[in-house]
Amino acid sequence: MIALLIRDLKLALRAGGGFGLGLAFFLIVVVLVPLGVGPESATLAVIAPGILWVAALLACLLSLDRIFALDHEDGSLDLLATAPIPLEGIVSVKALAHWITTGLPLVLASPVLALLLNLPLAGYGWLVLSLALGTPALSVIGTFGAALTVGLKRGGLLMSLLVLPLYVPTLIFGAEVVKRGAAGQAVDVPLLLLAGITAGAAALLPFASAAALRVNLR
């Protein structure tokens, strides 16, 4: 499994692997919002938590179809499915690799972008923490969406339609943590709920993803 993880990471880092695209997308969305909303820093400070979370979510979405598509094309997914590792494990590793290449850079870059949106100082820690806790759920849920649409020709748009509603709870709790943190309120409840969703998704969704994958490889 570790070998698979290293292989996936190497593939993503290689030229054309798409690493950094998500990060660049995150940056562009965050730059575009003030251009649309206007430069008043007070307004930006209010919407910053939501914008940062929505941008992170879209950046995650963008790279989802890569999780299985390339492996499906060259047939290595079939090989993986017959490997001695259970498919649930493979799916989890794929989600982890996606998180390391997409989610983690977003988490690390978010404070810089929060600066652009004039997020109140108290919110920075909560922003990084909520993204660190929430983006794994985005990767795991996204892996499920990718597993559902793996064999389809134009799966990308369909996958967005399937995955985005599933992102709702994560988005709400994640943005709520930052909003409350920035306003200096107690954040423990949304933070715990966010962590709960991530833990639950990481524990249970790989079974659904593996089931979907088995159907698609049948």
Partner: peptide, 28 residues
């Protein structure tokens, strides 16, 4: 048959997340 399998799995997962969303929205 593939469609039936995949949509069933989506329906199960979707149900869980729909309930989660319901509570999240209430909270929000």
């Amino acid at each position: 048959d593939t469609a039936a399998d995949l949509t069933s799995v989506l329906c199960l997962v979707g149900s869980v997340f729909a309930i989660l969303s319901r509570y999240a929205v209430n909270f929000w």
